[in-house]
Write a protein that binds this DNA or RNA. Structure first.
Length: 224
DNA sequence: AACAAGACCAACCGCCACCAC
DNA sequence: AGTGGTGGCGGTTGGTCTTGT
């Protein structure tokens, strides 16, 4: 598929400083996009796909480097509970962070917690069976899962009724309004939230607010 | 000091959607 | 309507760094 001449033996592996400079210069003059012509314009022996990735994940101005903050971690956890593995969507609400970064972070931090939670749940269920007691109620299960950053059937149901259009609507609305958010602003009158309000799980309904609700860097934040 | 295991991160791959022709 | 090019996304891999023993 695409991305320049497919038969060409593109260079792979880590980028060197000179390559970064060539790519940066190219983007400076031509803007983002037209990645397949980077190699012909710059002499860079990299596929367009590789160039795009390097730019988006590493060279693009405004990228934040360094550790994910606790605030960002909270946002990631909540948005993941809401959208699942929609890394690029989640990344939109974390200025300066890339989808790749968030994805990596999730895998190394939350996956662990999640698997241990599953293990705990399994143990609890075994205990229930052993003690011939009724199963944990859905409510308790949900609360435990949300607390632990895991997912439940309830969440899956909620995610099912909160498709991409909802997120797009939110994006469009916020962009049109040019909204800046601070800690005083706690609610937004938007169909997205009304939709979320129908969700049977109050925890999840609460979690439909984060994009607009969260402050960023401790003193207000912005979208995009 | 040496080694192993785990954590972290950059980069690649395959797939899909969109668009122009 | 079909096809190919392009852009983008999510999953995975592999190398490097850090930490514990």
């Amino acid at each position: 598929m695409g991305w320049g001449a497919p038969k060409q033996a593109w260079k792979k592996g880590p980028w060197i400083h000179e390559e970064d400079e060539l790519l940066t210069e190219y983007v400076k003059f031509h803007g983002e996009g037209r990645w397949s012509s980077v190699s012909t314009s710059t002499g860079l022996n990299r596929s367009g796909k590789s160039c795009r990735l390097r730019w988006v994940n590493y060279l693009r101005p405004g990228l934040k480097r360094g550790h994910i903050t606790p605030e960002e971690e909270g946002i990631i956890a909540d948005l993941h509970a809401l959208w699942g593995n929609k890394w690029s969507t989640i990344a939109r609400y974390l200025p300066g962070r890339t989808d790749n970064e968030i994805k990596n972070y999730w895998r190394t931090h939350f996956k662990k917690e999640r698997s241990s939670l599953k293990q705990q749940k399994r143990q609890a269920q075994m205990l229930n069976i052993e003690q011939q007691q009724p199963r944990q109620t859905d409510k308790e299960e949900t609360a435990a899962a949300v607390k632990g950053g895991g997912s439940t059937e309830h969440e899956d149901q909620c995610m099912a009724v909160m498709p991409e259009e909802a997120a797009s609507l939110l994006d469009e609305y916020l962009m049109n309004e040019g909204l800046w958010w601070n800690q005083q602003q706690q609610q937004v009158n938007h169909p997205y939230y009304q939709h979320a309000g129908n969700c049977s799980n109050s925890n999840i309904a609460m979690q439909t607010q984060p994009a607009a609700y969260y402050s960023y860097g401790g003193e207000g934040g912005y979208i995009f």
